[in-house]
Amino acid sequence: MTYRLILVAVSLCISSQAIAGHVPPLVDAEWLDERLHDDDLAVLDVRSSIDEGGDRESFIAARIPGSRYSNYTDDGWRESRNDVAGLMPDVDQLEQLIGGLGISNDSTVVIVPAGTGPTDFSWLDRASEP
């Protein structure tokens, strides 16, 4: 099945030492709260053990109601090819990953990182590229 996604990448809690100053989110908590029950909204919480970004347990403890969890380092957002680590997987693999999270062509996606370290923003951006 082919998915053609338009992702709205959002960071509600960017806490990054790699970015100087305050980076405002693309949408704020009020906007999200007003839309949490929209059928086409998918809140994707992407976490990783990198920079103590957390795992499923930390997601459960701090999750946005109705959000979906994906582990950036373990769930297929990146792969190694020809001895090069951290590359985007091919389109078919991304379609499976995104579709497996219940995200379709009709979804409006808000991607939320854990907000724990400097790499949060980079994997948030990586997940929003497909």
Rank of each mutant, 00 (worst) to 15 (best):
D74V: 04
E79D: 09
R81L: 07
I19N: 05
D125S: 13
D83Q: 09
A85G: 07
P65D: 05
A85C: 08
S48G: 12
G115R: 00
T2M: 10
L41F: 04
N105R: 13
D125N: 12
S104C: 07
A29V: 15
G21V: 00
W31L: 10
D38R: 12
G86I: 10
E129N: 08
G53V: 03
G99K: 00
W77S: 01
P65R: 12
S107G: 05
L124W: 00
V43I: 09
S107F: 04
P130I: 11
H37L: 12
D90F: 06
R81H: 12
R126F: 10
D125F: 09
L41G: 02
G115L: 01
L12D: 02
L97N: 01
V109L: 03
T2H: 13
C13Q: 13
A61F: 02
N105M: 06
L7E: 00
I64Q: 01
G21N: 02
T119K: 03
S48H: 03
G99I: 03
G100I: 10
R68I: 15
E79S: 04
P25M: 08
P24V: 13
I19W: 03
A42Y: 02
R81Q: 07
T119S: 08
D83E: 11
R47V: 07
V43T: 06
S15Y: 08
L32M: 15
L101N: 02
D38H: 13
D51R: 08
V10L: 05
I60E: 15
R126C: 05
G102V: 00
A61H: 04
G66D: 08
L44P: 01
I64A: 05
G102A: 02
Q96D: 13
V10P: 01
S122T: 13
S128R: 05
V23Y: 10
V27F: 12
A18C: 08
A29Q: 13
D125C: 14
V84I: 12
R4L: 13
L32F: 14
V10W: 00
P130L: 12
I64R: 06
A42I: 10
S16Y: 01
H37I: 05
R126V: 07
D90C: 06
L32W: 10
R68M: 09
P25K: 11
D40C: 05
S67F: 04
D55S: 07
R35I: 02
P24H: 13
G76F: 08
I98V: 12
V109P: 00
G86L: 09
F121V: 13
T119M: 11
D51Q: 07
